[in-house]
Design a protein around this nucleic acid. Structure first.
Lengths: 117, 117
DNA sequence: ACAAATGTGTAGTGTGTACTACACACAACA
DNA sequence: TGTTGTGTGTAGTACACACTACACATTTGT
């Protein structure tokens, strides 16, 4: 039920194939946490870390923070702040997009990005 | 710096003009919290309550939960879950919409609602 | 063979969140 | 005038979050 740990471990060990610096201990140290803690997190014995720590881990591994945060069940604070600025507007939009299939949302994202607005 | 309390108090006292049942005590009791706690929340001496309690208060007062949650600095869990299902897509969309003015976002919301997708 | 590095087990900690319980003084109301 | 209701002050609590500290056995590198 906690995908964060297993996903992160898998990714870390992949990178480790080609670079010894991606041992659990070294990654933990660079991210500023205790190795024993990361060990428990990777095995799902502990819940996913804080946003701050997840981002540090993501950067070290070269992973997408948004994806890793999502696996940890968290929405990054900056996205939350964007929503909080216009709560009703975003609430309505997100709830409606939730019923649409991926390709529709993707198309929408592209159109917004391409400045059709 | 905490708008939740003052806004809620204002709203509650407005409703109280025409209905004595909207005293602090009665609202608190119906929402399932202690009056002294609501008193502190309204005066900003305590941080805004949990999502659960905010929603109970919103329903009692007939306020929009999303707005009240936003004033409390929170994004409702169901919105978060919608985002977590497609984290990268939503992250990109929200960040881009954040730079656009209200009317542009509003227009987008309307088009999605009207099923142009 | 020996030192260095690795992953993990146990135990404990500080901080924040979200409240409760109870007492008090004051006001309205009947 | 007494009871009922009102807002507020003080004190305290249960629980979860996000870790740390350190020891240990095992594995790896030279």
């Amino acid at each position: 039920m906690n995908e964060f740990g297993s996903y992160f471990r898998k990714r870390r060990e992949e990178r480790r194939q080609s670079d010894r610096r991606f041992s659990l201990r070294q990654v933990a140290t660079r991210a500023g946490i205790e190795p024993s803690y990361l060990s428990k997190v990777e095995r799902g014995e502990e819940a996913p870390p804080s946003e701050r720590t997840i981002c540090a881990l993501a950067e070290d591994l070269g992973e997408d923070p948004d994806l890793l945060l999502a696996l940890g069940g968290k929405v990054s604070r900056d996205l939350q702040l964007a929503i909080l600025r216009r709560p009703q507007l975003f609430a309505q939009l997100i709830r409606e997009l939730n019923d649409l299939p991926d390709h529709a949302v993707l198309r929408l994202v592209r159109e917004v990005r391409d400045g059709a607005w």
